[in-house]
Amino acid sequence: MALLEPVVRLGRGGLGFFQRLGRAHLFALEVVRAMGATLVRPRLVIEQMYSVGVLTFVITVVAGLFVGMVLGLQGYYTLVDFGAEDSLGVLVALSLVRELGPVVAALLFAGRAGSALTAEIGLMKATEQLSALEMMAVDPFRRVIGPRFLAGFLSMPLLAALFSAVGIGGGYFVAVGLLGVDAGAFWSQMHSSVDFYDDIMNGVIKSLVFGAVVTWIALFEGYDCVPTSEGVSRATTRTVVHASLAVLGLDFVLTALMFGE
């Protein structure tokens, strides 16, 4: 029997994984079903956009600024060897708009807003608030989960756009302000090389996908957690880990689909 123990554990783990995956998809189905009721009460969505979006504003701006500055610095040291430092604007803008904006903003969103969503829903479960809603004949998916999901889905592209815009500002400051790159060349090359549909819209699509996935994982982890302090804490950790890995994995898939030949 001892020999079979690892096989039994593997089987049990596999079954547990697929059960959770199934529950997560049923949860997503319930969220989609609740969307109609969520859309007719925009006030609830706006309230949640404040807590998941506006409260993530500062960390996004600060991170975007530094990422843009580092890009400017690293890009300059590489390009200057080839006398191509005038192309720094293109490098900074494309890196941010195509990749770093959506991805890093989504990672920050998972850490800041995702963990907060999981903790909030988990605590609502632990303190019987979700049960109380059910007993008051109020569907938690329409009143609690739906508005939060929509808020996360809509906030993510705005945060990613903000991240990219501030990052380009940071890159400009380092390139033009500190390293003496020509300002006209910085902007004009960026303007001629960045395409609205191929680059910016693809970045927006990425951030919409990341917003949906991160918010889904965060809400599901909170809803499915063991309703104890330890359970909520573990669920919060799982949200950050799973959401971050999902963002990075999906980024590869989306990039391959969008920018492949």
């Binding site: 019987e128 049960s131 007993m135």
Partner: peptide, 13 residues
């Protein structure tokens, strides 16, 4: 048609 009083109160915080 049914009210329930939860042990913790379960007020919306």
């Amino acid at each position: 048609r049914m009210g329930m009083l939860f042990q913790s109160g379960a007020l919306l915080t």
